[in-house]
Design a protein around this nucleic acid. Structure first.
Length: 771
DNA sequence: GAGTTTGAAACT
DNA sequence: CAGTTTCAAACTC
């Protein structure tokens, strides 16, 4: 336990009154270390000039949960004695428990109070999982940390701190941490140092913290800056992570100040239930980078978090999409697992739950101010009002994403436990990372971030804006509805149909498509899916840009895709957006039952356009494509998102089993994936499919008698990504379209160009059915 | 902005 | 499963 180093660093302190801790405590005169609300405490002697803005955030109360309270000497210049002599504290027994330590740098410049947590047996597995290179390093590189439990505790108690102090961690860099030698019974999680002090107001507390953060040369202080803006759940998980990390800390010659709020401690049981694998990695890397940045910046000064510089976490995946699914997912994974605190503080979540979305307040955050539709992002955070079960998939951030985005966030929305989700998200290319007002990280699809160029406020009530909205809201992006009677619980509602919650820009009435009505939404969704398993599937199955065997540029045109079910236009000639094919930018196919089809993207009859007609149509097409720019990639993204964020694998049925359930042989196929998406998509999809349903079963329920392609051979796509495949029945409730396999497409212009429709994957779609 | 048209969704 | 109704988006004025 006791190592020579420890003795050298921190000789025992004879008495409590004379102990460095006691002196240190006394030096903190501005703060009366008495837990009594009756005692007015001031911070007047501290040179902070303004209240930290952070306190206006939802984390305003977070000082209670702040993990680390550290002070620089300069905090209290009136106590010169603090700077005298080395006052390292040695933990007499060196037990690796918890505690408070006074820390003094060799340079005698830094003093900090740190709370350490012991390694936790229950976390040992995480230690193994946690990559060494991603372990957090919240340490001052040169810091020699020692700690004392008994002394510190006694001293603090002597000083009048009534808050129980928990045993202490002793650790010096390079020292061996003793194994958890049977002290489990004594194990308690350290309390928040904030609890050791009473501030006259939260502002004081925060000001104190802020002040500490400004200490120019106290690198580790930055940690408090970081930690102070975590949600309690973040902190608790982070602490847990650190506990895990303690075991191997000696290998890295580092040590971390551990911090754990009482609240977090109370949540220990909850934390225990979490699979923090992803969290660990995420937090580890994130913190590593953050702290490394903070601790090792060139100037040697603490780098405050720049909220404005925080990229938008909400861009990248799906906005409010799939809240339904995640809610369901959480339910499936055990409703008692509290994922919520990983994403939002309770306060935040309450706000969310009550409003269906987070209030859009961009104060102090230019980014948020300027981001149109930020509410959309926040919508992604939709949670249940009670248990916060919902965590948007988009919240799952891969460490890669985080790293790439150079995260500088104050608070973390921690990923949930689903490794698969995590993995799937790591491959999302179009993600940015940002933070909400609450610092909640949300990943959102860029394409769904309503990127109105002028940053104009969304107003779906304006026809022009509506139109533009539509342009930007293809395939579920930025859906905004105007429902009056459907309560946004029918497919009439674009939001609902797109699998997203309605948000502020919606002009719907009596909307039930909100997180607070999650149960209703889910139930309705299930009901609809029971009627039509593909009801929430992408309507347009887009061709891949990676069709290897064609190289035909036209393959990338909308004509290479098809509406999964086809249209039924009578009067619009498939030339207006009434036509779903046209709206989706795809040509009509034999699946369509339209009359007088003049779809410029491809007529149902496959008639060839020539001469002027072609030119006109091409022009039209061009214009259209401008309006749905990136739609192709969007579609891919969407499909990928669908798979990633709400893969049917997570819930069950979906397409793979849909037909099985109906015992219907799949017939023609509007549901054709034309070498859909990218290989990524395909591969992922396949992977997911494997998860949810045995491949053979999947194959069994689709008609692969593709006449024009493989003559009924099993599509290779099911074996590899490059295989042509075929047609899948659309699963329209009414089976409206039963087209013969696909010579149809062969006759259509796109196919005539040599494109082959390849069933690379079945776009996933939300399926809530539990299995 | 109000009214109309349109076709999908829902219902019978 | 066809016919009808409902619905909301698209469109027109």
């Amino acid at each position: 336990m006791d190592t020579p180093e420890k003795s050298q660093i921190a000789p025992p302190v004879p008495t409590h009154e004379d102990s460095p801790v006691f002196n240190f405590i006394r030096s903190l005169s501005p703060i009366k270390p008495v837990k009594s609300v009756n005692i007015a405490q001031t911070f007047t002697s501290l040179p902070f000039t303004s209240l930290p803005s952070v306190f206006t955030s939802p984390h305003a109360n977070f000082h209670k949960n702040s993990s680390l309270l550290q002070r620089h000497q300069s905090l209290d210049p009136s106590n010169p004695d603090r700077s005298s002599g080395n006052q390292n504290i040695v933990c007499p027994n060196g037990d690796f428990t918890n505690g408070i330590s006074q820390r003094r740098e060799n340079s005698d410049k830094k003093v900090s109070v740190e709370v350490h947590a012991e390694p936790c047996k229950e976390n040992s597995e995480f230690a193994a999982e946690f990559p060494q290179n991603s372990r957090p390093s919240f340490y001052n590189p040169e810091g020699n940390m020692t700690a004392c439990s008994a002394e510190a505790e006694s001293a603090l108690e002597t000083a009048g701190m009534l808050t129980p102090i928990i045993p202490v961690v002793v650790k010096s860099p390079g020292k061996q941490f003793p194994e958890d030698d049977g002290q489990e019974q004594n194990k308690e999680w350290p309390i928040d140092t904030s609890d050791l002090f009473m501030f006259s107001s939260p502002n004081d507390a925060e000001a104190f913290r802020e002040l500490v953060q400004r200490s120019p040369d106290l690198g580790t202080v930055c940690l408090s800056s970081l930690m102070s803006r975590f949600t309690p759940g973040d902190v608790s998980n982070f602490e847990r992570l650190q506990q895990v990390d303690l075991r191997s800390r000696e290998q890295q010659q580092i040590e971390a100040p551990l911090c754990l709020t009482q609240e977090a401690y109370k949540r220990k049981e909850v934390i225990k239930n979490l699979d923090l694998h992803n969290l660990d990695k995420f937090l580890g890397k994130y913190m590593s980078i953050q702290l490394d940045k903070n601790l090792h910046n060139d100037s040697g000064t603490c780098v405050p978090f720049d909220y404005a510089a925080v990229p938008n976490f909400h861009r990248g995946l799906r906005r409010r999409c799939l809240d339904f699914e995640i809610a369901e997912l959480c339910k499936l994974s055990g409703g008692d697992s509290d994922y919520s605190h990983m994403a939002l503080s309770q306060r935040d979540q309450n706000t969310l739950a009550n409003e269906g979305q987070l209030p859009v307040k961009g104060e102090g955050d230019p980014l948020r101010c300027t981001l149109p539709g930020v509410g959309l992002h926040l919508n992604a955070l939709a949670t249940t009002s009670n248990d916060y079960r919902s965590v948007e998939h988009g919240n799952l951030l891969s460490e890669n994403q985080l790293m790439n985005a150079q995260v500088s966030s104050s608070s973390l929305n921690l990923p949930n436990s689903h490794q698969t989700l995590h993995e799937s998200l790591t491959s999302v290319a179009s993600e940015d990372i940002g933070s909400s007002e609450n610092g909640v990280l949300v990943v959102q699809d860029r394409s769904q971030s309503c990127p109105y160029p002028d940053g104009e406020e969304l107003d779906c009530n304006s026809p022009q804006k509506k139109r533009r909205k539509a342009e930007h809201s293809e395939d579920g992006a930025c859906k905004r509805c105007n429902c009056k009677k459907s309560k946004c619980l029918k497919l009439y509602c674009e939001c609902f149909a797109a699998g997203v919650y309605c948000i502020e820009p919606c002009a719907c009435l009596d909307c039930l498509n909100k997180p607070i009505h999650e149960d209703t939404v889910l139930a309705t969704r299930k009901q609809i899916e029971s009627r039509n398993p593909l009801a929430f599937a992408p309507k347009v199955i887009r061709a891949s840009d990676s069709c290897p065997d064609t190289g035909d540029e036209s393959n990338k045109t909308p004509a290479s895709a098809r509406h999964k079910r086809g249209c039924n236009c009578k009067k619009s000639s498939c030339l207006k957006k009434y036509c779903e094919c046209y709206q989706g930018g795809v040509g009509c196919s034999f699946n369509c039952r339209c009359e007088g089809c003049k779809n410029t993207f491809g007529r149902k009859d496959g008639s060839t356009l020539t001469g002027v007609e072609t030119e006109v149509i091409e022009e039209e097409k061009e214009n259209f494509e401008k309006s749905v720019v990136n739609q192709g990639s969007l579609e891919i993204t969407k499909q990928r998102d669908s798979i990633q964020a709400t893969p049917s694998a997570y819930y069950g049925p979906s397409i793979q089993t849909a037909y099985l359930a109906k015992n219907e042989p799949p017939r023609s196929t509007s549901f054709v994936t034309t070498s859909s998406s990218s290989g990524l998509h395909a591969s992922q999809n396949q992977g997911k499919l494997k998860h949810s349903a045995p491949q053979p079963e999947f194959e069994k329920h689709y008609d692969f008698n593709n006449n024009n392609n493989d003559g009924g051979k099993m599509p290779e796509v099911l074996q590899s990504n490059d295989t042509p495949s075929t047609v899948i029945k659309t699963a329209s409730p009414k089976c409206k379209r039963v087209s013969p396999p696909h010579s149809d497409f062969g006759s259509s212009p796109p196919l005539r160009n040599g494109r082959r429709l390849i069933l690379k994957s079945i776009p996933s779609f939300p399926s809530l059915t539990q299995h």
